[in-house]
Amino acid sequence: MRKIYEILGKIELYVAEVLLILIVVLVFSAGVSRTLKNPIYWANPLASFFFAWATMFAMDAAYRRDKLMNVDFLVKRFPQKIQSYIKIFNYLVILAFLIFLIVFGVKLAFIQRYRTFEGMYGFSYMWATLSIPVGSLLLSITTLVKIIDEITNLRRWRKELCS
């Protein structure tokens, strides 16, 4: 299981990096082509579309590494065990929210199947919408793993205390 989780992490980071390169190339060529009075009209919208996906993948990559900013000056003052409980509580609330994003994100994508992605003819907006539920799915997997890790920590401490 861990293995799959780690492979997933590698893939998402890899995709985010590739999208980032594509964004640079697209936006740069859009600028250059416009200066040469021959604009590539789909380059910027396509870059925005990639941006939506890149952000969600990168967000999970940051979440996995605990790089999402948080405020811990208060929590740090509690004993280890309480800290763990608070963390588990936080993760459960986050998980509930992510499940909401997944379920209703898919629903919204379906509702928006008629909508055109601004600036790209015949390209459904739905494909951008899906970035939210897919990203949330990755985030919820990460959250689950974090919950499991926290419970393992609790167990270990209890054992150490008993022995």
């Binding site: 604009p39 009209y41 919208p45 055109t116 601004e118 600036g119 003819y121």
Partner: peptide, 17 residues
């Protein structure tokens, strides 16, 4: 950004952005 606008302006001779 809607196709109708873009095509109308293109038909009149300009490059829509």
């Amino acid at each position: 950004g809607t196709p109708v606008w873009q095509e109308s302006i293109r038909a009149l001779g300009a490059t829509p952005v």
